[in-house]
Design a protein around this nucleic acid. Structure first.
Length: 290
DNA sequence: ACCCAGGCGGGCG
DNA sequence: CGCCCGCATGGG
């Protein structure tokens, strides 16, 4: 097992904040042990205060796995700087105090796309259920030896694997509901004409514009993909919670349009709006703001 | 038995 | 444009 030293990182808060990793990873009750699938490998991570121990099967080379972990959990992000930039009011300062070390995870763009298409008009519990079923039904099966024990797992289904599935079949097998046509439609586009791995280098607005051409990907889902799929930290996904919280905290409870809230977030938090969103969301939910 | 859940697309004024 | 409605489904 390798290890890295980390500061200002809580694997528990990060994984439990319902970012895509949460939708298909398993974390222990105490939040210290995580198992998830990255590509075709099974990765295990254990956090002991400021130390992160990790390994994978099949074994990725030392540097590759180290890079995967660092990137996946946003360990390169300068939290001191981010907290300074976004923690400028009481609400966010409290949110940071409540969830210290919560990072924005960086996930595979396609996996992120599917997860957030599934998330629309849905709840976290059922999102996880549906994503699990998609993996179970259409993901490629792998078996590996973990410390003498034989463990099997499935990788996330590729666009090619989903492009040919029938809408009714997916609805029946995975319980996706009306989202099946979006998942399959997006899979077809990504399989045939849109290579998601080529959007990394585009700027936020260009990439967002392109991803919104996928069926079932509107403003909010697109921002989630920009943030957690491409690591574009200026993205500010606006869902019903965020809208309510921002109106309550920053607009004296007055209703605002989506466009207005985007402008506000951009001006106030700029390049770290995505981190502001993450902390607003979790603090807001725990306070049951409505 | 209801009611809701991290929206989106399509239709209308 | 901005608003409003329907949408599949499992859990509370």
């Amino acid at each position: 097992m390798q290890r890295i030293r980390t500061d200002d990182f809580s694997m528990k808060h990060t994984v439990e904040s319902a970012q895509p990793l949460t939708f298909f990873g398993d974390i222990s009750a105490d939040g210290r042990h995580l198992r998830y699938v990255a590509g075709n490998s099974l990765v295990e991570v254990r956090q002991n205060d400021g130390l992160l121990y990790f390994g994978s099967q099949p074994t990725l080379s030392g540097t590759r796995l180290r890079k995967e972990i660092a990137k996946r959990f946003g360990l390169q992000d300068d939290m001191g700087r981010i907290y300074e930039k976004i923690g400028t009011d009481e609400f966010l300062a409290n949110a940071i105090a409540r969830y210290p070390g919560m990072r924005v995870t960086r996930n595979d763009p396609w996996e992120t796309t599917v997860c957030f298409i599934v998330s629309q008009f849905n709840n976290v519990k059922r999102i996880r259920l549906i994503v699990r079923k998609l993996i179970e039904n259409y993901g490629e099966l792998h078996s590996v030896d973990v410390g003498g024990k034989w463990v099997s797992f499935r990788s996330f289904p590729t666009p090619d694997a989903l492009a040919g599935i029938g809408v009714k079949e997916m609805m029946k097998k995975c319980g996706t509901g009306f989202r099946a046509k979006y998942i399959i439609g997006s899979a077809r586009t990504c399989s045939e004409s849109l290579d998601l791995n080529r959007l990394h280098h585009k700027d936020y607005h260009r990439a967002k514009e392109q991803i919104m051409e996928l069926p079932g990907v509107g403003d909010k889902v697109a921002d989630c993909i920009m943030l957690m799929g491409y690591g574009k930290l200026e993205a500010f996904p606006i869902d019903t919670w965020i809208k309510r919280i921002v109106e309550r905290v920053y607009f004296d409870g007055k209703k605002q349009g989506i466009k207005k809230i985007h402008e506000f977030a951009d001006e106030r938090w700029g390049d770290y709006a995505g981190y502001a969103q993450q902390y607003l969301f979790w603090a807001g939910r725990s306070l049951k703001i409505n």
